[in-house]
Simulated scan of single mutants.
Amino acid sequence: MSTATLTTKGQITIPVDVRRALNVEAGDRVEFVEIEPGRFEVIAATRSVRELKGRFGKPKRAVSIEEMNAAITAQATRSR
């Protein structure tokens, strides 16, 4: 198991074996995703969203900006 120490500035150095496993290097971004209260996963965020193009197939129909905004609003009101 790898460990790191938190500095007074709130920074940590990711251990070399973890950096290798995540395939990250200086300047790359990582995300901390809470999977349950008090438990996080560290995920490499080094790829561009553009790399996702074409991976999900064509949509069945085009969706307008207005429809997207309505869906977002509906979901937001349900979440409260």
Rank of each mutant, 00 (worst) to 15 (best):
G54S: 08
G10K: 12
D28P: 02
P59Q: 05
D28A: 05
T46C: 11
G57A: 00
D17S: 11
A70V: 07
T8M: 06
R47P: 06
M68Q: 03
R61M: 13
A26G: 05
N69I: 06
R61A: 14
T73D: 12
M1N: 09
A71K: 11
V63Q: 08
R20D: 11
S2Y: 08
K53C: 10
R29N: 08
P37E: 13
A21T: 08
K58V: 14
E67C: 01
G38W: 02
E51H: 14
G54D: 12
V24N: 02
R78Y: 13
S48E: 06
P37T: 15
A21E: 14
I43G: 08
R20H: 15
F40K: 02
P59C: 05
A71I: 01
K53E: 13
R20N: 13
R39M: 11
I14C: 00
D17Q: 09
L22S: 01
L22H: 00
R61C: 10
R78A: 13
M1V: 10
K60L: 13
D28H: 10
K53A: 12
S79W: 15
T3P: 01
R29P: 02
R39C: 10
A4E: 04
A76R: 15
E36V: 06
M68V: 09
T7F: 06
T7D: 11
I12N: 07
E41T: 08
V49G: 12
D17G: 05
R47S: 13
V42T: 05
